[in-house]
Design a protein around this nucleic acid. Structure first.
Lengths: 184, 184
DNA sequence: GTCTAATTTCAGGAATTCTTGAAAAGTCTG
DNA sequence: CAGACTTTTCAAGAATTCCTGAAATTAGAC
């Protein structure tokens, strides 16, 4: 592994641990992402200096995340693995999985809690806050649904367009306004 | 703390640990979010069943995240704390901080790596992948910049609008297409 | 079926992160 | 500036997460 690739892979590992995966999973993904050909488990273990069994567990998790796909190399019995080379696709899958694992359960919890009759003034207040959080999540969910239904190219166009629409639709927050909101 | 509020706070704690904070930080934020009045450190410690010093360290971190604001209660020497009750504002601050802590360093790393001359075919391939990742991040960054400059209400309008624009701008990916992309 | 190579599992150890109590430092009041 | 109260710091223990080697399982070739 060239020093540059190595730096990238190590960095992505650190990021992985902040993005719901862990360091090793991040490294494995990063490595597969920048490697033009599929790799087998032993190659990965050697390249990343981790044990073969660690790779095995990592692959198991990455399969569950839908971040790696099996590939067969003719004349070789071992299993080979790749990841999508479309970074938008990777981003999309990551978003979908995190939603399934983290957002959806949170929505359920919020809905359950909102069904209960508030028994005190404080409960009523709390429920209002929960309702607002629920509405935000649901709005984002719907938006992501629509966006992720689009092919990557359209999505890019949307985002670039979004910038312009944003400027037209409403005034920017002023520094003061932003500050007041923060302190409120 | 009523059982419902408790369930919410515990759940947000778990979420916190997946969102760059940790369990305790998440619980503290959640508690402040649903509590109509500012709280002091000791109240928080008692309510959450954690030590006073843990709250102190938590507050220190939450200050660094810009997620809590001090509030003074007349006639009481102790410091009181609140968090914004605008869930969009909280979301925005979280996004801004994570960008500063995670995304920006990643962009630097990518830029550095892209400056190097590739010495092999594999390096050239890797650099192409890095360039694509760089472009994606930069596009998202610009988009977030524009969005986060807008007041919450305009942002909500944008997102609701985005759904419709998305439907017009391009065809949805078909199941098959989506599948193929995933397996590619 | 048997033999071999590849993969997976898992219990224990390693490493990291979190929490705590005690002590230090800070702050307000009179 | 003394004394009471509050907050912060920090080192050590607790808890959690991660990684490994050995053993078990699976899969393929003959």
């Amino acid at each position: 592994m060239s020093p540059y690739v190595q730096r990238f892979v190590m960095h992505i590992g650190e990021m992985g641990s902040k993005w719901g995966l862990n360091r090793t999973l991040g490294q494995m993904c990063g490595l597969l992402y920048v490697t033009p050909r599929p790799m087998n488990a032993e190659e990965m273990a050697e390249t990343l200096n981790i044990s073969r069994s660690n790779v095995s567990m990592g692959l198991k998790e990455l399969k569950a995340w839908r971040l790696v796909q099996p590939a067969s190399v003719p004349g070789d019995r071992r299993e080979y693995w790749t990841t999508s080379k479309d970074v938008w696709e990777i981003f999309r899958v990551l978003a979908e999985e995190r939603r399934r694992r983290e957002i959806d359960p949170t929505l359920s919890m919020l809905r359950d809690t909102l069904l209960a009759d508030p028994t005190s003034e404080e409960d009523r207040y709390a429920q209002d806050r929960l309702q607002e959080m629920h509405d935000l999540i649901e709005l984002l969910n719907n938006w992501v649904d629509d966006m992720s239904g689009l092919p990557s190219k359209t999505l890019v166009r949307m985002l670039k367009l979004g910038r312009k629409v944003g400027r037209l639709l409403g005034p920017r927050r002023t520094k003061t306004e932003s500050h007041e909101t923060t302190l409120n």
